[in-house]
Design a binder for these strands. Structure first.
Lengths: 175, 175
DNA sequence: AATCCAGATTGAATTTCATTCGGCAGTTTG
DNA sequence: CAAACTGCCGAATGAAATTCAATCTGGATT
């Protein structure tokens, strides 16, 4: 019986949805993850242990994928940010694409619609490094061509994703 | 005399460069910023207060731009990730581009080279939301046209930037 | 060449914070 | 209607961040 209740409890917990308080917590953490649970609890109107419990759940469910430090690329010797569009023939070549993960210069790889099938976001130290990276891409079988867009300036860059403005009125403040 | 020494001290501190230990600390924090200074100190071969001192400096210098939680877009109701290329006529229209920052769906805006002048990374809840966003872009004066690339799957997504492999041998371990 | 000075590191001390525990209210289930 | 479960709060505990004084090292000045 004990095992049965535990399994039911677990499934009920994982099936639980996300409410406005969770989204507000995510919004706070997506802007500054260094603030204490006490500070967040004041913003969302909960106690610190309650916030901690929810954050733990959000981590377990994968809603919070990771907590990381954002590094200024220019200060670590990689001032060049570029987007590379890769034109590929057919599919099933993802194994070789995966090999690009070995290069720390590659920050993102997305499979997309459109005439170009792959979009890469790379950050390199020099034009030579970019050239070397492009040659590696060309070596991949099935790559028809590439288009590179050098970033001249970054106007906006943020990670905030939780939309808080939707249901603020549904938040219940205690006391 | 006293004032002179102080000014020299300040300038010397801010002009201080970044060594291999700083890069290793950045590498650790860019992968997981929740780990304690004690854990990082074991990785880099320093004491915990020394690591803390360096991290504080890295924050002040801007090398660590922020520490944020990475949110799973799909779990917060925004499953659609897309890149929008904006073709603009001339320049000086950045004021109106800045207005796009008001939309939480817009995560990044880069001014780039190539036939398209602007690359945007957006995360929206629905095709309708994407359509609404595109109509806002079209309303901006000087926008000639746009190209949208829907992300089918994200192969790689990371923030690690500090290159550690470069100068490991130059790291000096105390004692 | 020797002395002095600035910066960095260390280990200990302090304080803040994360984490756990018991108890209670609201809600759902049987 | 009762029982159980979920989620919250307040207090307590443990660990971690943060500060401090003292020491060491490297470099510049005299």
């Amino acid at each position: 019986m004990v095992e049965k209740t535990e399994s039911i409890r677990t499934s009920a917990r994982s099936a639980r949805g996300m409410d406005a308080l969770d989204r507000r917590i995510l919004g706070a953490l997506s802007q500054d993850a260094t603030q204490s649970y006490a500070a967040i609890s004041e913003q969302v109107g909960l106690s610190a242990p309650a916030v901690h419990e929810r954050v733990k759940r959000l981590r377990a469910s994968g809603a919070i994928k990771a907590t990381v430090a954002q590094i200024d690329g220019a200060q670590v010797g990689k001032p060049i940010l570029a987007f590379i569009h890769v034109d590929t023939i057919g599919w099933g070549k993802t194994r070789e694409i995966m090999a690009l993960e070995q290069f720390p210069e590659v920050e993102e790889i997305h499979s997309t619609t459109g005439d170009t099938c792959l979009i890469m976001k790379v950050r390199v130290a020099s034009p030579q490094a970019l050239e070397g990276l492009l040659s590696k891409v060309y070596d991949i079988e099935g790559v028809r061509g590439t288009s590179t867009y050098l970033t001249l300036s970054t106007v906006l860059e943020r990670t905030a994703q939780a939309d808080v403005t939707a249901d603020l009125e549904s938040v219940s403040y205690p006391r």
